[in-house]
C-alpha cells in the first residue's frame, strides 16, 4: 500500500494569521484506505490542517492534492469556485457541532446536496437517504427534525449526510468532542464501521482510546508542527518525543479526573 502514490498529499502546508504561524511547513501523505488520527493540544493547528484539506481554511503556502487534483489550485476567482465545489464533493467532512440544517428534516438534510449537485430525482434521493441512514442506524428517524434528536443521533445523521455524496475521503473534526460521554460510543461505532469498509479517513480527535483502536497512524501536533508520527502502538505506548509524552500524560490525568 505504501508504495502507491498518496491519495491525500499535503505538501509544505503553511498558514499564518498576521504574525501568528499556525502551521509551519507540514507535509502529510495519506494512502487510499488509510486511517490517520491527528492529536495534540488545542491551538496546535490540527483543526486548521484538517480544514485546509477541503480549503475551508485556505493555506498561506503549500499544496493540497487529492489523487491527481490539486485542491488549492491557483485559479481566477470564478473558475476556482467551480473547481473547489467539484473537489469538495469528494471530501466528506464531519464537524464538532454537527452543523445539521435545522430547518430541514433528516431526509432533506441528506438529499439536499445530492439533488442539487448530482441531478438525481426524488425517488433516487430517497433511496440514497434510506441507504445512508440505515448504515448509521438512523433510518427510523428519517422524517424527524434535527432539534428532535440527541447529540449522538445528530452526529450520525451528519455522517450519513457526508457519505451520501460518496466522498473519497472523510474528515472528522473532533466529531465526538461536543457529545455527552454516554453518546460518544454510538458515533465511534459508526466510524469503526466506516473504517472496516476501508474508507480513507483523517480524524482530529481527543479520544486516545478510539485513535489507538481504529487508526493506522497517529500524528502528534504541537505549535504548528508535527512533533511525532507513527503507528498508534508506538505513539501511545512508547512515544519517543518528550512533548508527546508530556501531552499524553497530561491528557490521561485529565481524563481520569
Amino acid at each position: 500500500m505504501t508504495d502507491q502514490k498518496p491519495f491525500v498529499d499535503i505538501r509544505h502546508a503553511k498558514k499564518s494569521y498576521g504574525t501568528l504561524e499556525v502551521l509551519k511547513d507540514i507535509s502529510l501523505q495519506v494512502h487510499r484506505g488509510e486511517i490517520v488520527a491527528i492529536i495534540g493540544p488545542s491551538g496546535s493547528g490540527k483543526s486548521t490542517l484538517l480544514r485546509a484539506i477541503n480549503d475551508l481554511d485556505p493555506l498561506s503556502g503549500g499544496e493540497i492534492w487529492l489523487e491527481d487534483t490539486q485542491v488549492n489550485m491557483d485559479l481566477p476567482h470564478r473558475q476556482y469556485e467551480k473547481h473547489i465545489n467539484e473537489v469538495r464533493q469528494n471530501i466528506g467532512m464531519v464537524f464538532q457541532h454537527f452543523n445539521l440544517f435545522p430547518h430541514l428534516t433528516v431526509r432533506e438534510n441528506i438529499t439536499l446536496a445530492p439533488k442539487l449537485l448530482k441531478g438525481i430525482n426524488d425517488a433516487e434521493a430517497n433511496k440514497l437517504a434510506e441507504e445512508q441512514l440505515a448504515k448509521v442506524g438512523m433510518l427510523e428517524r428519517i422524517d424527524y427534525y434535527p432539534s428532535q434528536l440527541s447529540g449522538g443521533q445528530k452526529q450520525r445523521v451528519a455522517i450519513a449526510r457526508a457519505l451520501a455524496m460518496k466522498p473519497k475521503v472523510m474528515l472528522f473534526d473532533e466529531a465526538t468532542s461536543a457529545l455527552d460521554p454516554e453518546l460518544v460510543e454510538e458515533v465511534n461505532q459508526v466510524m469503526k464501521a466506516l473504517a472496516e469498509e476501508h474508507m480513507t479517513m483523517i480524524i482530529v480527535t481527543h479520544e486516545m482510546g478510539f485513535a489507538e483502536s481504529v487508526c493506522d497512524r497517529v500524528l502528534f501536533m504541537d505549535q504548528g508542527v508535527v512533533v511525532e508520527e507513527g503507528p498508534p502502538s508506538v505513539i501511545f505506548r512508547n512515544p519517543q518525543n518528550e512533548r508527546t509524552r508530556n501531552f499524553l500524560r497530561k491528557h490521561l490525568a485529565d481524563a481520569n479526573k
Binding site: N85, E86, R88, Q89, F95, N99, F101, L112, A113, L116
Partner: peptide, 29 residues
Amino acid sequence: DKGQMEAARTLGLSRGQALKKVVVPQAVR
C-alpha cells in the same frame, strides 16, 4: 451560525446555493 454555511460549502454547494437553500431560509424563519 457560521457552521451552516461551512457545512453546505463542504458538501459542494456554491455560496449562492448555500445562501438560497440553507442560510436565508433559516434567517427568514
